[in-house]
């Protein structure tokens, strides 16, 4: 059966549906908040969605591709291509302002632009000052550059004592 949606696919509608696909690791973020959708191309009935991985080994990428496919299939779009594009490399600069607010409300400190580890010779350098997403205190310290997933570092608040994830700057 050919649905109306499949015969006249509008790009805006596709973007709307992509907004409903969430990041499986951080379900409060949509894949648009995360900034990993590079483009939508429509060629007749074929729809190509290009996504870019956050980290090379991010295990969520396969799930995200499947979730996009399922969301679009449910609306009657059947000719789908999900393309993976690695260049230009993803950066946290592409994360939307709304996404950053959602992250903090969820208990994960959002990335602070311009603080990526760029200089390897700056060993034991000053830690990025990260605000505690729970009590909003600025008195926090880095526990480990490597957290619960590749994209996060582990911090602890010195005031409320809560450990929390920081979505590290990646640019």
């Amino acid at each position: 059966m050919v649905t109306a949606a499949a015969t006249a696919p509008a790009e805006a509608r596709i973007w709307q549906l992509l907004e409903e696909v969430s990041d499986p690791e951080v379900p409060v973020l949509s894949i648009l908040d995360l900034g990993i959708v590079r483009g939508v191309a429509i060629d007749g009935e074929q729809i190509t969605v290009t996504i870019t991985p956050t980290y090379s080994g991010c295990p969520a990428m396969n799930t995200i591709a499947t979730d996009i496919r399922l969301r679009l299939l449910a609306e009657g779009y059947t000719k789908l291509v999900i393309k993976n594009q690695i260049s230009p490399a993803w950066t946290t600069d592409w994360m939307s302002p709304a996404g950053r607010d959602k992250l903090e409300a969820y208990g994960i400190a959002p990335p602070i632009d311009g603080t990526a580890t760029g200089h390897v010779l700056n060993l034991f350098d000053k830690e990025t000052a990260v605000r505690c997403p729970l009590c909003k205190s600025a008195h926090t310290h880095l526990v480990s550059q490597f957290g619960s997933t590749a994209c996060k570092a582990l911090y602890q608040c010195d005031d409320c004592r809560e450990p929390f994830d920081y979505f590290k700057c990646h640019s």
């Binding site: 690695i86 490399a89 580890t117 390897v120 060993l123 034991f124 550059q145 990646h170």
Partner: peptide, 26 residues
Amino acid sequence: AQLAAIAEKSMKEATYHLKWSSEWMI
């Protein structure tokens, strides 16, 4: 171009690795 793209991506990660292992050496 493809190798350059993979390297561009991986270098961001390798930067953290080198910093981590350097600090542990010290």
